[in-house]
Design a protein around this nucleic acid. Structure first.
Lengths: 343, 343
DNA sequence: GGTGGCTGAGACAACGTTGTCTCGCAGTGA
DNA sequence: TCACTGCGAGACAACGTTGTCTCAGCCACC
């Protein structure tokens, strides 16, 4: 900037004014400065600028997600980026992989970088370590899962309601033996979906069968083998409610291998690409990750702008998408008990 | 930091030494400083630190992709993040949406932020605007598509070879009327895939039929309607080579609607989730976005570390994944000419 | 006992900007 | 003509760090 000032024959401060679009610089000088900037290939240093500026904005927000590579996270990421772009703000991202320590490290690293705000899909059980940051004016918004131990805006899908709707849908189609297959119970969304499942059973006066409830399934592979085993036991269910993406896909694979994909009903929580092209197409409770990201970013920018109201909870509704797999009627016990015959 | 120094009864510089893990501070003083840091909740300011440090590293790299929400980009993103994590570096991301101006803006913004390096999947036809940045020691690596007008490392899939392999595979199964369905010709990968297709036809002595070559298809919807129209004309092909993800999915939808999914052979370029669960499962030329991201990041970190060798080209091989749709034999002309009969 | 080297710690300036204050000068009205 | 106003532009300090220089104190060696 010094070089530019010298080349243009003006003071440092005048260059600064031109760079920041200050109106009160005479057009002649401004043109000289622009020429000098051009020839010297000058690029302002945003870091030095934010250091000196009074508002201390870095025009950067941080986004901590489960895994930027998975469809849910990346759809959410994209929506946050779009909202950030509208504010002229850039996005730092990090994947947590269900690792609480990683969550802490990244949150620490991003606040040390003076991000203007944080959007977190938390994986640890306690976010009180963020208290200091929030107090020192770095707003935080939780998305997909609630934060604990610290007051902050939260954006959540209606997990209980959605899971209950899925289960009710199966009951309405005549099923009473409905298996639940869910993720790690330490994940709050998994617990809520299980809760919705139990609620719907209770409403219908169906006693939950502990032999049909499977938790702590996290990958398609574990889901697939669990379901394979389930159908090789006496008294298998007539329907499955899978409470997570990968579990649903594992279920599709298992039912295919068993030859039961047209026999056993299936409703999955969370939509996935090509669900409509499978045979039968998979009925799901669709979440809206894009809307979740958008709402979370909007909430964050309100806080950054100075909103100091009490923490808000935003509930993003889920939608039942009927595609075929969830509308199959219960099969006869005889058929169910000899699954391999239908292969 | 001043407050910490005062609270610990030491000089500013000693706090700096403790924060940076300088060995030559006596344990007694270091403990005092750590206590003061704890009670005052002091967080070092990374921005100020990089401003003063001699190496000027921000420990941040920028990643410009087509769309962080699509599977190819997000898999690549994840791999870059993993490599960056190993170097203690964070990642700024941006989506370009095939918009050349956006590419320029983001590259400019990220270099103004003094990112240590850039990984770009370019969308504009000329990257010479980056010359200055590269000269001023901000390395750039191009990924997925080559950069133009500026020397830099490049990581590319073997598009020509892969496309030729796909086409040869169909020829080997008896097809001679093979349609090509590709993305915008302004995208270099699309041009290369078309080139591979033509090469394989030439090898086999098949004259390309202009009526079977469709370009500038970018979405599943346009691909679907193009293919619908194609099969309502006389002399439809017995096989399709779709040179992009969304086009492949559009093709699957179209063939389903036409009832031709078990009749017309299909090979797609680029794998996609659940391709193996469709009926028939879709044969593809799989790219390896994770490897592309990893290699690109490794190349970038070598440059950041000071490597000044000539620009390198890294070719990431593609793999033919046989799943069924690409192994269908040519159907009889009679059948092909009355597609609706097989619905 | 004097010299030299080593070690731990502080003083000071500087990184690239911008907020604040000041000042010169042209234009205005009495 | 003179004070007054307003506006464009420069001087200076400061943002939160760290590189460099300096120095006091200690030990060792001849």
């Amino acid at each position: 900037m010094n070089d530019v000032a010298r080349a243009a024959g003006v003071s440092l401060k005048t260059v600064s004014r031109v760079v920041n679009g200050d109106e009160r610089v005479s057009p002649v000088l401004a043109a000289q400065v622009h020429r000098a900037i051009e020839t010297l290939n000058y690029r302002p240093d945003v870091g030095a600028s934010t250091l000196r500026r009074s508002d201390r904005r870095t025009e950067t927000i941080a986004l901590l997600l489960e895994d930027v590579g998975n469809p849910f996270s990346s759809a959410l990421h994209r929506a946050v980026e779009d909202e950030a772009r509208a504010h002229g703000v850039h996005v730092l991202t990090g994947s947590l992989d269900e690792d609480p320590q990683r969550e802490r490290e990244l949150a620490r690293a991003f606040t040390a970088r003076r991000a203007d705000g944080l959007i977190i899909a938390p994986v640890s059980t306690d976010q009180s370590y963020l208290t200091t940051e929030i107090r020192s004016d770095t707003p935080v918004v939780f998305v997909d899962r609630p934060g604990t131990g610290v007051p902050a805006d939260t954006v959540l899908a209606t997990n209980v309601i959605g899971a209950a709707e899925a289960t009710r849908h199966l009951i309405r189609h005549g099923h009473r033996e409905i298996a639940y297959l869910g993720d790690y119970t330490r994940i709050s969304t998994a617990r809520h979906r299980q809760e919705g499942y139990l609620q719907a059973l209770a409403e219908a006066g169906i006693a939950p069968d502990p032999g049909l409830i499977f938790t702590d399934l996290h990958t398609a592979v574990t889901a697939e083998s669990t379901i394979m085993a389930l159908f090789h036991r006496p008294g298998p269910p007539t329907a499955l409610f899978t409470s997570q993406n990968l579990v649903t896909i594992g279920a599709v694979r298992a039912l295919r291998r068993l030859g039961l994909h047209r026999t056993v009903a299936l409703v999955g929580f969370d939509d996935f690409p090509l669900a409509d092209l499978l045979e039968p197409a998979v009925t799901v409770i669709a979440q809206d990750p894009a809307m979740m990201g958008r709402i979370a970013a909007q909430a964050l920018f309100r806080r950054i702008a100075g909103d100091t109201g009490p923490p808000a909870e935003h509930w993003i509704p889920t939608t039942l998408v009927r595609r075929g797999s969830g509308e199959l009627p219960p099969s006869s016990p005889a058929l169910r008990d000899r699954p391999s015959s239908s292969l």
